[in-house]
Design a protein around this nucleic acid. Structure first.
Lengths: 149, 149
DNA sequence: CTTCCTGCAAAGAGTTTGCATTTGT
DNA sequence: ACAAATGCAAACTCTTTGCAGGAAG
């Protein structure tokens, strides 16, 4: 289930919303992002600026929130004080192991987690958008330096 | 594994840190919080104020971060724009199903998730602090009002 | 031609930090 | 005594919002 400009337009229009150049460009950036990469709002702003696309931060924030709520993007909490976003594709669905000290994140896959999420949302009558297992832990190198913050 | 003032003191001292009245009181609040309850920094500030304990917000933020990093508290991202905290006890370990539109959160238990987390951290040599499955979805009543934000 | 969207600037919320003072160990 | 923690206020970061002009359906 890959999003195209056309399918995005359809889905937007169904809700009384519109396809704008900005939304199309932002979707395109995420579609072409190498696997496992994720962008913060600022990152996206910078990527766009380098491509010569000057889309305002307000629009970026509004679009990221909208696309997350539509299930097009995943909103990741990587414990860095701001959110990161990536395209939401079941085939690349993964989770994160994060060091609470150095914030380093490792991605990993696990097939049973999505099943747990599907079962749970079905049971409660919710419409599933995304499910993420976030593991907070201390990485080997930070374990060796317990005294320092 | 219940924390007492004494065990907290020991663990702090091991790292060259100190047990202060503020830290003891904050731990106490979380110990006695009804199951499934969680507090934001502001909530905790208010709870303390009502008990006549005027602990500054700075100290609260510093203590919450410290106790999370020690594995005493769990840091929850309930998609409300700020973090919530609760005591980290395996026996009450649970996860969250959150509506991205109204932010309503349902708690649920699942035994296999902690196993997945333990296996993953063991494999990578990390020291497990906490693992949480967060499901983002749209609740039944928000599904019925798709047009509105 | 109406409604939605954008960009700008300003405001807002939550959190962090510098520093003088106080307090554990 | 000495290092660490507190409280205060100011600063900071990320994000949201009001509004006027511009664009999509």
């Amino acid at each position: 289930m890959t999003y195209t400009a056309a399918s995005l337009r359809t889905e937007l229009n169904e809700r009384g919303w519109r396809l704008t150049p900005q939304r199309e460009i932002i979707l395109d950036i995420f579609q072409n992002l190498p696997n496992g990469n994720h962008l913060s709002a600022e990152d996206l702003f910078e990527v766009l600026r380098l491509k010569g696309e000057n889309i305002s931060l307000s629009t970026i924030y509004r679009t990221l929130k909208m696309m997350s709520r539509m299930g097009i993007l995943r909103e990741l909490e990587l414990a860095e004080g701001h959110k990161h976003y990536e395209i939401n594709q079941p085939s690349h669905h993964h989770h994160h192991l994060i060091c609470v000290k150095c914030n380093k994140a490792i991605e990993f896959k696990n097939e049973s987690i999505l099943k747990i999420g599907s079962k749970m949302t079905l049971k409660e009558g919710y419409q599933l958008l995304d499910c993420q297992l976030t593991i907070h832990a201390i990485c080997p190198s930070c374990q060796r330096s317990l005294m320092t913050d």
